[in-house]
C-alpha cells in the first residue's frame, strides 16, 4: 500500500447526500478479476449516457477540476454495497482523500485498506470547504500526521482518526503482515476453541 502522509491537491465538490457505492461504481464494472483500470467506471451513470458517450456537467469532468485529488461530498458517503471497487475506482481516477460529514462503515474501512483517506468533519466545516472548492483553481492540504485539513483561504480544521489506522496509512503497512506477527496468539485461540467447541472442528 502506498503510504499517505500529506496531500496537496485540488478538491472537487459533490454536494449530494447518500452517494452509494452503486453510484460510485455500477455493477457492470464488478465483473473484473483485477483491481486496476476501474477509473473508467467511476460515477459512470453521472458521467456517461446509456450509449457510453460523455455527458457534460459532472464536476470531475469540468476542466477547472482536472487532476483533482480530493472529493468533498454530502452526508453518508459510500453507503450500500461492500464493493471495494469503489475505493479502487476513486484511487485509479486519482482521488486520494474524501471529505464528508459521515461515511458508511464498510466503505470507510475499505478506504484504509487502500491508502485512500476518508475524513469526517462537522457539517459547518464541510460546508465551508465545499464553498471554497467551488470554482476550482485552488489547493487544499491534508496533513495526516498533524490530522489537519487546510483550505485555500487558510482555514485549518482538525480531524479524528483511529491511531492504528493512522499508523498503517502513514507507513503504508500491510495489515495481513501485521496480523501474522500474532500467529502464535491465533494458534493459541484455535487450540482453546477446538477444546471448547469441538463441533466446529468436524468436517461438515
Amino acid at each position: 500500500m502506498t503510504p499517505f502522509t500529506r496531500l496537496d491537491a485540488k478538491a472537487a465538490p459533490l454536494d449530494v447526500a447518500n452517494i452509494d457505492t452503486d453510484q460510485i461504481i455500477p455493477k457492470q464494472f464488478l465483473k473484473t478479476v483485477d483491481r486496476e483500470g476501474l477509473a473508467r467506471g467511476l460515477f459512470y451513470d453521472m458521467r456517461f449516457d446509456t450509449e457510453g458517450a460523455a455527458k457534460s456537467g459532472f464536476v470531475l469532468d469540468d476542466a477547472a477540476f482536472a487532476g483533482a485529488g480530493m472529493l468533498i461530498a454530502g452526508d453518508n458517503f459510500g453507503c450500500g454495497s461492500s464493493r471495494e471497487h469503489a475505493p479502487w475506482a476513486l484511487l485509479d481516477f486519482g482521488i486520494r482523500c474524501v471529505i464528508s460529514t459521515s461515511f458508511a462503515d464498510i466503505f470507510y474501512n475499505n478506504c484504509f485498506q487502500n491508502g485512500l483517506l476518508p475524513i469526517a468533519l462537522p457539517r459547518d466545516q464541510v460546508k465551508a470547504l465545499m464553498g471554497e472548492a467551488r470554482g476550482g483553481n485552488h489547493v487544499f492540504s491534508v496533513d495526516l500526521e498533524a490530522q489537519t485539513v487546510t483550505s485555500p483561504s487558510g482555514q485549518v480544521f482538525a480531524f479524528e482518526i483511529d491511531p492504528g489506522r493512522k499508523e498503517k496509512m502513514l507507513k503504508g503497512l500491510d495489515a495481513i503482515g501485521e496480523t501474522l506477527q500474532a500467529a502464535g496468539d491465533i494458534a493459541d485461540y484455535e487450540a482453546r476453541r477446538s477444546l471448547d467447541q469441538p463441533w466446529l472442528e468436524v468436517a461438515a
Partner: peptide, 21 residues
Amino acid sequence: GIGTSEVEHVLATQTLRQMKS
C-alpha cells in the same frame, strides 16, 4: 460484510482487525 482486502485478510489469518462498535 467486509471488503475484498479484508476477505484476503480473513483467508490468510482467519481473523479480522477491528475497533468495537
